[in-house]
Structure formats: structure tokens, C-alpha cells
Design a binder for these strands. Sequence first.
DNA 1: ATGTCC
Length: 480
Amino acid sequence: MAVDIIQGYTLVKDGVNKWRIPKFGKMRVDAVVYVNDSLKELLRDDQSLRQLVNAASLPGVVEPVIGMPDIHEGFGLPIGGVMAIEEKGVISAGAVGYDINCGVRLIRSDLEADYFTKDILYKLIERIEHYVPTGIGKKGRHKGITRVIFDDVVHNGVEAVIKAGFGKKSDLEYIEEGGKLEGADISAVSEEAQERGEEQLGTLGGGNHFIEIQKVEEILEENLAEKFGLFKGQLAVMIHTGSRGFGHQIATDYTKILWEAAKRYGIEVPEKGLAAAPIKSKEGQNYYKAMAAAVNFAFSNRQIIMFDVIRAFEDVLKKSEEEMGFKLVYDVAHNIAKWEVHGGKRMLVHRKGATRALPAGHPQNPPSYRDTGHPALIPGSMGTGSYVVVGTEKAAETFYSVNHGAGRRLSRNQAKKISKEEFERSMGDVVYNVRSYKDIVDESPLAYKDVETVVSVFEERGITIPVAKLIPLAVVKGAD
DNA sequence: ATGTCC
């Protein structure tokens, strides 16, 4: 029996790429982390195992608390963490994260990527920036209309922005939850969060958010790729953003509210980032209502950005959306808590830096992907590849969750030390918009784990089937 | 991630 000791915790090998921390002390359940030998080494200088162990002590937690292959430390639950809680247990804002429904949307086209010279790519990213405000604190270009429809957006999700003219009704079939998480209620959201949100719909933000023009580099599973409308050499666009200042304010407000509520309810919370209250309590219910509002905001944000990106392509290529064949492949949440049934039991699954990946035939798939399983989207860093995968039946052991990216290897502060030369080399031929490398150096591919290795962990275990690999041609980032 | 400290 293979055993390893990391950060003082005993890890016991539990099959391919899977390590278990048997429960001890205040843990109510085991913690599990999915890594191969090289990724496991990265946990030695990182607090993420402690954060998994702490999460395993919360009331109502379901066996096991799980770390994804791209795990790294976060606030409360690690990024790359999955925590399921039974109905009589607690809900935690820190286990969803500050960027509620941070997520990814993939758009395909009928265009051949090889047509896109650097000259065209520069024109495109310039035009995309013309339409999509990027960077911290930016207000939306559509804020006149988004203020008017804001209430409708938070309660009804993407359907509301489609009614206002951003895209078409059929897009709803290609968004997790149909673009709307039930149970949102604006009355649970602070005035401050509402004011920030109304003006920020349709903005990209900063940090790891991006709009990427990509090429389908490799088809890894022919049959599924065809059903997802993907082909080798195809031009695609990936959008990665979330709920901006709206979700951030909600997370800030409720971390405080839940921290104080925990004391009143006598819940022992091991660290502030895991602040939690009973799901059935007033505070817990209110967090869910506010979180759902931010989830709907973020799906809608990506819908508006898709609309604007397609306008940019129309302007530069002088072709219509129909001629270019742009279609939504899928839109997935990476930071969310949702009610799901696993093993016949209803539970609230918190995913923070993790993607749901339902297998073929699972009834919660959208009808468009019932027979295949929906695409799970895994962006790499901005100089490397991204993957489309699907979950298998074996993904039941992770509550049908897979990794959400490559995962950070260096902290932002460590990554700031990367030199200009190293940064430029790491970007290779990828065209990017930000003029000063200092603004995005902490997003350098060198700051991330190797996405191929990370994706291989679940593939080797039989939890995912990789379908396609996409590589970046051009990337639009927000300068902070 | 974030009007990166009201």
C-alpha cells in the first residue's frame, strides 16, 4: 500500500491517480485528491490539502471532499475543490468562491483557422476590444439597456438578455441549466451589489478572464467531436469570465453574514473562508438566492459578450453571422453550488474551480447532449491548449465533476518575477492585446501547470474522454 | 476573482 506524507497529512494511494486522506480529528469524512506523481509534488508547498481537510469537518458533508488535478489553495475551499452537503447540512460562500459562476463558453464556426493571418487577428482583437470593455472596474457598453433588464436578468437568466436582442432563443439549449439557476431573488442582494452589477453586464474583467480566438488543433474522439460540431482546423472562440463586481460583492457580503451566523448556530468553522450556515437557515437561504442571482448574471454576461464578439467578426470579415456559421457549443459554470441527486440522495454540490461533466444518458444533460454527455470545457493558460472533454459513468465518484483548467503553479506574486523575455517566449506566436507585459505577466503560461498532464489524470482514470484540443491564435485580456 | 483598502 503506497503512502505519502504531505504537509503533515497521510495520503494513501487508492487506485490510479487517486490519493485518500482517511478521516481523523474533526473530519467527518475522508478527503480525496486526484493527482499523478508530478502534480502531487506541487502540493508540498501549498495549503490546499489543509483546506480540503478543514472542509471535511463541516456539518452535513458527504463522503468524500474532493480535490481536482488542478487544485491549488484558495480562500476557504481550494480552487479545484468539490464539496457535497446533504440537506440538513450547511452552505458556504467560500466554497463557491468570490467569482460566482466564473465559467467558460465555447463558440464554433464554419471558418478555417488557417485563413486568419496575424494581420486579421490583430484587427479582430482590436475590434473585440472596441465592443467588449476589459479590465477591472469597467462599465458595460450596453449599460443603458442592461439597467432596464437587470431585474429580469437576475431572476430569469439568459432568456432575459435574449429577449433584449442578444442572441437567439436556441442558445438556451447550449448553456448549463438552460442559462438560469432556479431560486434567484434580488431581495437577498445588497444595494451595493446591485449598483455594481447593473452597469457591469457585458464586461470581461481582469485576472484570468479572457476572450480567445482558437483553432481546433486535434480531434481526439471523432464521433463525439462530430456531434459537438467540431472539426480539425476549425476556428472557434472561447470566453472565460464570471459575475464581475456583482458576484464579488455578494460573496463579500455573505462571507461576513455566514461567519456571524455560524457563531449563532454554534457551527464550528475552521477558517473564515469556510464561513457556513445551515442550508435551511434564513442566512443560508438568502445566500443561495443571492448566489443564484449572480449565477444568472454571469451566464448572461457571457451571452452578451458572445453577441459582441460576433459583431466584431462581422465588422472585420464583412460577413454575416450566418455566413460565418457561429454557433454556441456550450457554456459551463466553474464556481457554483447546485442541488443535485447522487446515489439517490439530494445534496448541494459546491464546485469551486471544477466543472460538472455528466455522462451520456444522464437525465440532467440538456436535450441537445442527452445521448453524448455535455461538453465540459477546460481552458489551459493563454499560451497553451484548451480541451473539450466529456464525463463517463465513472465520474460518479467525483459527483460528476472534473478539473476546470490547468491550475496555477505560481502565485500571482511569484509570477510577477517572470522576465519580459521569458514571458514573450512563453507566448510563442499567440497574438495578444495587452501592450505592457507587466499587466499580464502573472497570467503567463509559466505561471500555470501543464494542462496536458492535468487533463491526463482523469483520462487515465477513465473519468473523462478527451474530445478535442484547441490552441490559441489570439487572446484578449483585461489589464488590471 | 475584485471600483486589488471606505
